[in-house]
Design a protein around this nucleic acid. Structure first.
Length: 510
RNA sequence: GGUCCGUUCGUCUAGGGGUUAGGACGCCUGGUUUUCAUCCAGGUAACAGGGGUUCGAAUCCCCUACGGACUGCCA
């Protein structure tokens, strides 16, 4: 078998949708599994929808999540260029071939004339007006106009498009790797535009020409392309490439968490989760859309989660390293039905991957965040905090947001705990503890525990009487890591000070 | 409307004629923990409906219902 070559071909019209990331992932997994090549091709044939920065965003996103391509617009490759706008000259040749062989034709209808045609047909009871075998005979094109007139129009600079001449009666069959045989009758396909009046190809032509020229062996893409797949088969046939036509695999859609339908930005906002791999700032509106990266997701976790949305290895293993994913991946285990996007599962994956990180790695992540907050901390301290927080975080950002008290003394105290646990007994215990601490040196968790136990023992108090008050004084919160550990990280003097501050500020609650 | 695709616990899914229909997330209960979380144990919950085929259908066939995608000089 020839070497497997797959491509991910996004259009630079904005940030990369998470569904696109999954498509890229499946392509990548398949390529790695087969020892093949992954190609990134930018489909920028629609100049009106071009968004500055989108291409860089796509490349950076794929890089962040760990999807690497061997051939792409940045490093190039043997079948470049990898940006369709730069391949513009190539498409005309094939459009011409189609015209010459009677499989395509010129059309001169203006947008207004097309609208009028659609209106006319709708009025006549046709729900979906098509530019098809019947309609084309009543329109302005090289099939209805005399040859010399056509030539004159083209020479005279009259704008035109090239349309595919879809056969009237033909059954088109294709074997999809996910769905098996799909057949469609040609009379349900209309004469799609191949070359636009600006000379750029549409997706249909560009994708077929490029996939052929780039020797793509497998086209793995979203289900939204299934209806136009027969059209692409027709193109391969007319271009004489049917025997080297790539195999198709149409992936199930990512659906909204509730109800039905394609996952959209609206759903993501409604449920408060990101839709894009990285944060995206719209260059025109200036609006900011959140990203998984900035929300504290680990790329490995997101990858694992995404891999399981529409595919599974058939075993009971849930956590997979990238290599394991490659190892077990196969297209015939891809699901046919759409998968609802369940952010809770993504959170669980993130938690699992977070727990697997070393304290040093986690500490480093915390340090990065502290830097953006303008807070200084030693790597040792960050590591110690990470060690105590790793069992209770969902996002990397929780290292900071859930444990600010390691860096800043509490400003507020959990109201419920104060009401129930802050009383004279507790305050007395706290006071005894600070005096005991006064004569201590550096605190270790062990030493802190010894002093605390001894103090309570001498005062004849139980742990439960004082502990909650101590926690409140130190952290302001009701829950959290082991207090002895917290005290060791905070340091003796800070502990004493926070207790005294709390006693003063909570006086009225005694 | 038309064409195409789909349908197993709330969610992701295992399942290729005979299973107590399995796992994971979530949720609930209990245990561990001086707190929270983790962890451990247990529980809740599904084959869209109807016809066939068969000794026997979640599994094969047909119909219905429901859902989705597509239906642009967008990709």
């Amino acid at each position: 078998m020839t070497d497997v070559r797959v491509r991910f071909a996004p259009s630079p019209t904005g940030p990369l949708h998470i569904g696109g990331v999954r498509t890229a992932l499946y392509n990548y997994l398949f390529a790695k599994k087969m020892g093949g090549t992954m190609i990134l091709r930018i489909e920028d044939t629609d100049q009106t929808r071009y968004v500055p920065g989108a291409e860089d965003y796509i490349i950076e996103s794929l890089d962040w999540i760990g999807i690497k391509s061997e051939e792409n617009p940045v490093v190039g490759g043997p079948y470049g260029p990898y940006r369709q706008s730069e391949r513009k000259a190539m498409y005309g040749e094939y459009a011409q071939k189609l015209i010459d062989e009677g499989n395509a034709y010129y059309a001169f209808d203006t947008p207004e004339e097309l609208d009028a045609m659609r209106e006319r047909l709708k009025a006549g009871g046709v729900h979906t007006p098509q530019y098809n075998g019947l309609v084309r005979q009543q329109m302005k094109n090289s099939l209805t106009l005399p040859a010399d007139e056509v030539k004159a129009m083209i020479d005279g600079g009259e704008p035109y498009v090239v349309r595919l001449k879809v056969p009237l009666k033909d059954e088109i069959r294709l074997q999809d790797m996910v769905r098996d045989w799909v057949h469609v009758h040609s009379n349900t396909i209309d004469d799609k535009i191949l070359l636009k009046s600006d000379g750029m190809p549409t997706y249909h032509l560009a994708n077929v020409v490029d996939d052929h020229l780039m020797k793509i062996t497998h086209v793995i893409r979203g289900e939204e392309w299934l209806p136009s797949a027969p059209l692409h088969v027709l193109l391969y046939r007319f271009l004489g490439w049917e025997d080297t036509m790539p195999q198709f695999a149409h992936l199930p859609l990512l659906l909204k968490p509730d109800g039905n339908g394609k996952l959209s930005k609206r759903d993501a906002d409604k449920h408060g989760f990101p839709l894009y791999p990285m944060q995206w700032t719209d260059p025109k509106e200036g609006t900011v859309a959140s990203g998984f990266r900035e929300s504290g997701y680990l790329p490995e976790a997101l990858l694992n989660f995404l891999a399981f949305l529409g595919w599974n290895p058939g075993t009971e293993q849930e956590l997979f390293t990238f290599d394991e994913l490659v190892d077990s991946f196969s297209i015939d285990r891809i699901q046919k039905g759409g998968a609802k996007f369940d952010i809770q599962k993504a959170q669980w994956y993130n938690q699992q991957y977070l727990k697997q990180l070393s304290n040093a790695e986690l500490g480093q992540l915390l340090l990065e965040q502290l830097k953006t907050e303008g807070i200084e901390a030693s790597p040792e301290k960050a590591e110690a905090i990470a060690n105590n927080m790793k069992e209770r975080i969902t996002y990397t950002s929780d290292l900071w947001t859930e444990a600010k008290y390691f860096h800043i003394a509490p400003i507020e105290y959990d109201e419920k705990t104060v009401r129930k646990k802050w009383n004279e007994t507790a305050v007395n215990g706290l006071k005894a503890f600070t005096s005991a601490l006064a004569s201590e040196g550096d605190l270790t968790p062990e030493r802190a525990k010894e002093v605390f136990s001894k103090t309570l023992e001498d005062a004849g108090l139980g742990f439960g009487k004082v502990m909650p008050a101590l926690r409140i004084s130190l952290t302001g919160q009701a829950g959290g890591p082991d207090l002895m550990e917290i005290m060791a990280i905070l340091g003796r003097e800070e502990v004493i000070q926070r207790i005294e501050t709390a006693i003063t500020r909570l006086q009225e609650n005694v």
